[in-house]
Design a protein around this nucleic acid. Sequence first.
DNA 1: TCTTGACCTTCCAGTTACTGGAGACTTTAT
DNA 2: ATAAAGTCTCCAGTAACTGGAAGGTCAAGA
Lengths: 131, 131
Amino acid sequence: MLNIGSAARATGLPTKTVRYYADIGLVAPGGRSEKGYRLYDDRELRKLVFVRRARAFGFSVESCRTLLGLYEDQNRTSADVKKVTLNHIEQIDRKLAELKILREELAHLAGNCKGDDRPDCPILSSLAGER
Amino acid sequence: MLNIGSAARATGLPTKTVRYYADIGLVAPGGRSEKGYRLYDDRELRKLVFVRRARAFGFSVESCRTLLGLYEDQNRTSADVKKVTLNHIEQIDRKLAELKILREELAHLAGNCKGDDRPDCPILSSLAGER
DNA sequence: TCTTGACCTTCCAGTTACTGGAGACTTTAT
DNA sequence: ATAAAGTCTCCAGTAACTGGAAGGTCAAGA
C-alpha cells in the first residue's frame, strides 16, 4: 500500500491530480491509514495509469469514468468500448477540420500583411469587416 | 444608441456575452441610460463585431484585447499585428499536430477492435498498458 | 389605467480539469 | 530534538462564458 506521493510517482500523475481523482470519485484510494492518509494498492494504481493513458488520448474525465466502468465490467462487450472510442474519434475529426480552416484563413490574412512599420494591415481590416 | 439586447442582435453576440465583455472591460458601453441601461453606439458596435470575428478565429479574449488596442492605435505598425497573428498560427499548428497523432493512434486501436459482443478488446488492453 | 410580458439590472453559481496555497498535523531523517 | 518533507482539508483561481434568481423598467393591448 503506497501513500499518495508514492502512488503519484508510480503512476506518473501529479499528487494533486491523484487527490482530485479521489475527490470526484473517479479512482478512490484502496483505504486510509490510521492517521487518514490515502493508501493505494496495485488495483488502484492500475486504474490510475489507465486514466492517465485515456486522458492522454484526449478522453474527458467523464469518458474515463465510462471506460473505467467497462474496464472493470466482466460483461462488457468490445462493441461498447469501440462505440465510445469511435465517438471520440469523430469529435477529434470535427475539431481537426475546424482548426484547419482557421489556420488557412489566418495564414492567408498574414500572407497579405506586409509586416512593416506602416499602420495599414489587412488582418485588422478583415477583422473589422472591411471587404 | 442601442440597449444591450439590440446591440447583441446587431452584432450577432449573445446578450450575456456583451454584458460579460463590458464587465471585463473588453468593450465598454458608450454610456448608460438614466435608469442604468447599457447603451451602445456605432463605435462600440464595431468593436463588438471585431471581437466576435477575432474570437471566431480562435484568438483568446486577451489576444482580442491586444488586437483591439492595435486596432484603435494610430501608431500601430502592421508588423505588430502580424506578430500576434503568426504567434496564433503557431499555436494552432501545435494543436493540429497533437490532434493528428492522437487521432491516428485511436483509429489504429479501434481498427483492431472487433466491436462484437465478446469482452476482449485491444482498446482497453492498450489503455491498461498491456503490450 | 392596469396589467402582462419582454427586457433590463446585479449578483451568484456552475461549467472542465485541474493547480496553487494556507494552516495544521504526521512522518522521516539527521 | 528538531527540521524538512509529506499529508490532510478547504478555499480560490484558471477561460470564457452561461444560467438563474430577485427585482426594476418599458411598451402595448384591453
